[in-house]
Design a protein around this nucleic acid. Structure first.
Lengths: 192, 192
DNA sequence: CCCGTTTATTAACTTAAGGTAACGATTTCA
DNA sequence: TGAAATCGTTACCTTAAGTTAATAAACGGG
């Protein structure tokens, strides 16, 4: 399972045997069953997660309703806001499927950055890229109707539809499950 | 005007005289009049912008309509997506007010990072923080109605309302100018 | 200072999303 | 395996957003 990670990193920088060993040394690999809560609202945590296989989601509990706002699948990760603020978490993180993930904390990052400074560069570059992508994504959300967003999601993240319950997808699209259900019926009719 | 920048940076790291001199050496400070286009859709550009004073916005031209998706004010900045992809820009960037900005490109960053590695750490930390904040912001957007978003904006970014034309704010809120106008009337009535 | 453009508001109509509730179908797990 | 919870769909009604259009106010360049 380390290979999944190293294959990914190799797209950006070359890692020596020593560097790979240092990463494995950190003992960051975990498996988690579907439904497992990695982080609860209100908790303090210093762990970030990176998905090697499977799917995790962030969600809020608002008026007793789960509102899923993000899905992270293969080669995507999240450092929860609370890790940076040191305050209680605003949201929950849960596994949508049985997953293989990396769990890292700032101390581990610091250790790796100190040994191998080029990791820090990698993280900076990945972060900067992610900011720009996130912004594009948000832009698209703002400038689209729920229906367009739904169609867009099918195009941009094919397969996610199949992996995720519909009511979770609905809040991800910024609508209610009922609206998503209607929307789908509307589209099916149009297609005919 | 350098002082505005150095005051900001001093909240994160200490800069020596040499380091400050190296930054000034880069000749990154610019002023731009309201309405100035810093980047046009379709253009190639390698410049990122950081606002010291004033306000800039990103917008898309969709069916001849301007859709404003983000505002950047004091101590906020943007590295356009096209700088990272080397492809034509998806959006425009324009000054909303007369502004004092920093314009930087990857070569300048590389030069500074080489001279003073701690800058790279600063950028990584700021980037990681921004990712988490952006995500929270997006989450809030998805889980709120236009009305809640409007009220939230007043709270979170007071003053922006006064600085920015309403039709630009409308698309920023993900609605039409007409809807924003109605929404405001509705709220004014409620308050009474 | 004036005229054209941009901006904000309002109105009437259409469309779709929210709220509530009910219904089976599926999944979970004790 | 059987009861309970979860999930997706449908229906009905309400509410608000989109669309189009008209008008008035504010702004800005010559």
């Amino acid at each position: 399972m380390e290979d999944i990670l190293f294959d990914f990193i190799s797209k950006y920088i070359h890692l020596s045997k020593e560097e790979k060993a240092a990463i494995i040394e950190l003992d960051i690999f975990r498996t988690a069953k579907k439904g497992t809560l990695l982080l609860r609202e209100g908790e303090h945590s210093s762990y970030g997660y990176f998905v090697l296989k499977g799917c995790i989601r962030t969600f809020y509990l608002i008026d007793g309703e789960e509102k899923t706002t993000a899905f992270y699948t293969e080669m995507e990760g999240i450092t929860p806001h609370c890790v940076l603020t040191l305050k209680p978490s605003e949201y929950h993180i849960a596994c949508v499927e049985d997953s293989i993930i990396i769990a890292y904390n700032p101390a581990m990052e610091a250790a790796i950055f100190e040994q191998f400074p080029k990791f820090e560069r990698l993280c900076r570059l990945l972060s900067e890229e992610l900011i720009a992508k996130q912004q594009l994504n948000f832009d698209e959300f703002k400038t689209s109707s729920p229906e367009q967003r739904y169609l867009n999601l099918i195009e941009k993240r094919p397969g996610l539809m199949q992996r995720v319950p519909q009511h979770q997808l609905a809040s991800f699209l910024g609508i209610t499950p009922q609206s998503l259900s209607r929307l789908r019926k509307r589209l099916a009719k149009k297609k005919k």
